[in-house]
Design a protein around this nucleic acid. Structure first.
Lengths: 113, 113
DNA sequence: TCAAAAGTTCAATGGATTTTGAACCAAAGG
DNA sequence: CCTTTGGTTCAAAATCCATTGAACTTTTGA
């Protein structure tokens, strides 16, 4: 079982620190653009190497921003939208409004074949 | 003249990265609690040493979160509330709502005589 | 039973951030 | 002037973060 913080364990400094990163903001943007549908890690591969993404997913999960649930050999990533709204009303929406418009990090451009 | 980014130069990743820090969030909390009244640097001295605060103020200013204006031998710090609201509607308010409730970093407790 | 698929973990690296104290600067007042 | 007040700058030290590649685990399907 993967460790996720409960709603009241989610801390603002932690969330902000974790979201102050291009790659993680791009992950959020992708999730939001896909309508909050859970996505497998592999869907984000243009954003970095497998091991690097694994690292970023762990950061987001530990901060309470995403939920990660095993599903067969995959892991499904989803936004903890309701939990974040409950804890910090308005925060996620205002961030997503901009995140979905953000140009993806260099990586995606270089690696896109 | 101190360099401040214009409204459209303010970037979300930059703002989030800068606010993902206890000390800087505490500075924001103090500003908000005082009703957005401009405060001199010295008003924040319980949050750190002079040189350390100077470093944090520069970070906040460069990210477009605060304005710093010389006034005699002092420098007045103020929130760029209108600019941030224009650029990222709802973001600042949702952060401040929590920031004003945040327990101050250790420093303030240790140093408070 | 085996191999492929999907991710994780680890140690190593390089880079960025934070903190400190000492030296410095500039405005205001006596 | 000269001193105080209020802050800045600098270099050094200490942390912390992101990225990589190689080795590993787990689940599933043939």
């Amino acid at each position: 079982m993967l460790q996720h913080p409960t709603v009241d364990q989610i801390s603002l400094p932690h969330v902000l620190a974790v979201l102050g990163d291009q790659t993680r903001l791009a992950i959020l943007g992708d999730l939001a653009r896909r309508g909050d549908e859970p996505l497998a890690c592999a869907e984000f591969k243009l954003l970095g190497s497998k091991s690097n993404l694994s690292y970023h997913f762990a950061k987001l999960r530990e901060a309470g921003v995403i939920r990660v649930e095993p599903c067969g050999t995959k892991r499904l990533i989803s936004l903890r939208r309701d939990d974040l709204n409950a804890r910090f009303p308005g925060l996620l929406d205002s961030i997503l409004a901009t995140a979905i418009t953000l140009p993806p990090p260099e990586k995606r451009i270089e690696q896109a074949v």
